[in-house]
């Protein structure tokens, strides 16, 4: 056993134990770690977003164009320097700040409406392509592949599974009779898929736990290797 003299690793180890103490139940040690985590992370994110979004994207992209405008006035060459879309984003961001003034706070809804509207429109196309067209393209498979039993079975599972799974997500038709049977088969396919996904993810979480144990017993306490 060789304890590290690194104060940073000691803090990390003690905070890790503090978060793990939640397994025993809520306690002052956990509350301290939780409050510290939230405060530090909130501050960290504020600074990160300020420098990576506001400064890096807004200020840097606009300042060259504005400098050109100030020194040379409006010129045809300005288009090469001026990133108008960032100014538009900046205006939307400024409108959000108007919430601080109750009388004109309603203007901030324009920014929200813009974000929600463009998101919906954008995803209409991307979802149609990724969840619709590509799915269909990859499901159009031969029902029988001569001399290849396993591919034939695989194709049938994909076709039947996709067909029945899609049937389950029909909302304007009652799930009864043959249609209901197909939908029930569809949910079976979904549950089997979820089960496999559950097992896979649990294994990845175990690797995270092993990583933390390695940190505590190896990096911090020096009990490994």
């Amino acid at each position: 056993m060789h304890l590290t003299p690194d104060i940073g690793i000691w803090i990390g180890g003690l905070l890790t134990l503090g978060i793990f103490s939640f397994l025993y139940g809520d306690n002052p040690y956990y509350k301290f770690c939780e409050a510290l985590f939230i405060g530090v992370s909130a501050g960290h994110w504020f600074v990160t977003l300020f420098w990576t979004v506001f400064v890096a994207k807004m200020i840097r992209n606009v300042e060259i164009g504005l400098n050109t405008f100030i020194t040379q006035g409006f010129s045809a060459g300005m288009a090469d320097y001026m990133h108008w879309s960032y100014i538009f984003g900046g205006i939307l961001g400024f409108l959000m700040l108007l919430r601080l003034f109750p009388k004109i706070g309603w203007i901030s809804r324009w920014s929200l409406a813009f974000v929600v509207g463009t998101t919906s429109g954008y995803y209409f196309i991307t979802y149609l392509v990724s969840n619709g067209l590509r799915q269909i393209q990859r499901t159009i498979l031969p029902l029988y592949v001569h001399g290849d039993f396993y591919t034939t079975i695989g194709n049938l599972i994909i076709i039947v599974g996709t067909f029945c799974g899609l049937t389950y997500f029909f909302f304007s038709k009652e799930h009864k009779g043959t249609f209901g049977g197909l939908a029930r088969l569809g949910i079976w396919f979904l549950m089997i898929t979820f089960g496999a996904s559950f097992g896979y993810t649990v294994m990845s979480r175990m690797s995270l736990l092993i990583g933390r144990m390695d940190y505590i017993f190896g990096t911090w306490l020096g009990m490994l290797g």
Binding site: I19, E34, F37, I38, V40, S41, A42, W45
Partner: peptide, 12 residues
């Protein structure tokens, strides 16, 4: 608002 951090938020 709590925090943008994924696991900070989960802990909170």
């Amino acid at each position: 608002y709590l925090t943008d951090d994924q696991f900070g938020y989960a802990a909170a």
